[in-house]
Amino acid sequence: MFDLPIEGPALFSIPFGDIVDYASPYTLILFLFAALFTALAILSRPEQHADIIFGEDGVYTGRIPGPENRFQRFMAIACGLAAMGATVSGDIFNFCIFTSMVGLTCIGIVASSGNRHVLNAAFEYGIVTMIAMIPLFGGAAIVAATTGTLSIWELAGGAIAVPFVAKAFLVLGVMGEGMAPFYVAKAEITRAQGAPYILMIHVSSLLIFLRIIEIIITI
């Protein structure tokens, strides 16, 4: 248990051996957001998109075929669960694994779109997600090698110095996984249908980005 200026007091912790998940006010809020959107993905029905023809009165309602949607919902739920794991993780390597799972499920969500333009954007996005695993796990490896530990509780408080490169690699990896600053590519992706499921990409990337910023300030 600890009490830090950014993190706030630790409310409770769930030990999984050396990996101790903990909830502070900050991480608990992120976790609840992820849980809320996962519940939305489970409960809500997919939206039906409407194509409006300009200059006329024509409005077409598109219908999304079933199996495609089921897969998208499955991936959205998996993405939400991974985001929930990442937000409360108390271990840097564990956080990295959950983050890469978020990236992979995001590829799954966009890959289930049938639109050619969306798939082209998703391809580029997938390449970035795959590359991003190198800086992500590289950063975790540098942390382990230079400090000898991976637990955020041990590293917190500035008693053990974590090198700048490791932090930069971690942020870069999360940026690539969640595409947090690359909203350009996401704008293409959001042309895909199925609103509640596509939203999960944005929510999860936002949450893991907020979490990694908190982690690098804490350690």
């Binding site: 051996g17 050396d18 991936m75 998996a78 564990n94 992979l104 799954g108």
Partner: peptide, 21 residues
Amino acid sequence: RGLDTIVETSILFVAFAVASF
């Protein structure tokens, strides 16, 4: 560090699900 192993396996499962889809 058993939780890591579980999540790694889940990643593999997700990857196979995407590939098979």
